[in-house]
């Protein structure tokens, strides 16, 4: 009986916000929302990890996207954490799938329009895909910055 009550309570418990399917999201968005790929974090202090943190001030959503790059400049792992609507979650989830296996320069070419097209985002949700593109760019910029400061400290070490 108690178990039954607990199950009932779980069913009644509202999710934060309406379920995406109820809002008429495309099934691809719902799929990423329900089975997000690559959720989590990488070590932001690691020298071969770039972290991009972006926010959408109009709606208050935040998105973190991280990439791990090997010595050949290839992205070997990617993770994201997004607190936002279904489209924002799906866009960042898809972005992590797409950057994996690409080089840094290839990943820079990913456009928000590609993400929006793949997820069939309606015009009012285009900004979610823009946020994902910005997050990729921010993560790669952070990685590059770390690499440069790495090289500089190597140079200093050589000169010393």
């Amino acid at each position: 009986m108690a178990a039954l009550r607990a199950a009932g309570a779980a069913l009644l418990r509202p999710r934060p916000g309406p379920a995406p399917a109820a809002l008429g999201y495309h099934k691809k968005v719902v799929d990423h929302y329900e089975n997000p790929r690559n959720v989590g974090s990488l070590d932001r202090n690691a020298k071969n990890v770039g972290t991009g943190l972006v926010g959408a001030p109009a709606c208050g959503d935040v998105m973190k996207l991280q990439v791990e790059v090997d010595e050949n400049g290839k992205i070997v792992d990617a993770r994201f954490k997004t607190f936002g609507c279904g489209s924002a979650i799906a866009s960042s989830s898809l972005a992590t799938e797409w950057v994996k296996g690409k080089t840094v320069d290839e990943a820079l070419k990913i456009k928000n329009t590609d993400i929006a097209k793949e997820l069939c985002l309606p015009p009012v949700k285009l900004h979610c895909s823009m946020l994902a593109e910005d997050a990729i760019k921010a993560a790669l910029a952070d990685y590059k910055l770390k690499q440069e400061s790495n090289r500089e400290s190597d140079k200093k070490a050589d000169n010393a």
Binding site: L53, V54, G55, K64, F83, L126, M130, A138
Partner: peptide, 19 residues
């Protein structure tokens, strides 16, 4: 002019706090 939906915010210390 109001903040646009497409505006992107990159004050990382603040965003980290929100995250």
């Amino acid at each position: 002019e109001p903040v646009q939906e497409t505006d992107c915010d990159a004050d990382s210390a603040f965003l980290m706090e929100i995250m």
